[in-house]
Simulated scan of single mutants.
Amino acid sequence: MNPETLPRAELAGLHVEVVESPNADLVGVAGRVVDETTNTLLVAAGSGTTMVPKSAATFRFHVDDTRVVVEGWRLVARPARRTEQTGDTIWR
């Protein structure tokens, strides 16, 4: 998985960390993605869950031993629609 293919992947269950955001309180939030809406990711950390706006953050996803950094604006879409976007996939 790489920055080009990750936006078309299912994000629920992936480990994520917020690496940049205009809201300093969100930088460093890390945990598992437990839910996703058009504009937000719900991240479960040890002390609870945090809702992070996609468009206002840069995320680092941990997939196996790979770290993929994605600008949040690339993830803004309904999850089902985002995973159907045109690209180099054998499923379209």
Rank of each mutant, 00 (worst) to 15 (best):
V29M: 07
R82I: 08
P22H: 12
I90F: 05
F61R: 00
V29E: 07
F61G: 01
V52I: 09
T37E: 07
V33Y: 03
P79I: 11
R92D: 14
V34L: 02
L26G: 02
V33K: 00
A80W: 15
V19C: 05
T5V: 08
D25V: 11
E17C: 13
M51A: 13
L11S: 09
A44W: 04
G72W: 01
F61W: 02
A56F: 10
T5C: 01
D25A: 15
V29L: 01
G31W: 08
W91R: 13
E20I: 04
T5M: 07
E84V: 01
P22S: 09
V16M: 07
A44Q: 15
G28R: 08
S55D: 12
P3Q: 05
M51S: 15
G46W: 08
M1F: 12
S21T: 06
P53M: 03
R8C: 06
P79N: 13
F59S: 03
W91F: 15
G13N: 09
A24D: 13
P7T: 08
L75N: 07
I90M: 04
M51G: 10
P53K: 02
P7C: 06
I90V: 13
L6Y: 05
G31R: 02
D35I: 00
R32C: 10
D35A: 11
L41H: 06
V43Q: 02
F61Y: 03
A56T: 10
E84T: 08
V34R: 00
T50N: 01
V76Y: 01
G72A: 09
A45E: 15
E36D: 08
V70R: 07
V33R: 06
V29S: 00
A30K: 06
A80Y: 12
L26V: 04
S55M: 11
E36V: 02
E4P: 09
V68D: 06
F59I: 07
P79V: 08
R8G: 06
A30R: 09
E17F: 03
E20T: 08
T86H: 11
H62M: 03
G46S: 08
V16P: 04
V34Y: 04
P53S: 13
T83W: 01
R67N: 14
E36S: 03
E17A: 06
G72K: 00
R32A: 14
L42G: 08
P79L: 12
E10Q: 13
L11E: 06
T83G: 08
S47G: 12
L11Q: 00
M51H: 07
V19Y: 02
V63P: 05
I90T: 14
L6A: 03
Q85Y: 06
V18M: 02
A56V: 07
L42S: 00
A30F: 01
A9D: 03
A12D: 14
K54F: 05
V33F: 06
L42C: 04
R74K: 15
S55Q: 14
A30M: 00
A56R: 14
H62G: 07
V18A: 04
L6I: 11
V16C: 09
T66N: 10
G87Q: 05
D35F: 08
G48C: 04
V16N: 00
E4W: 10
P79W: 10
V63I: 15
T89S: 07
T66K: 09
R74C: 12
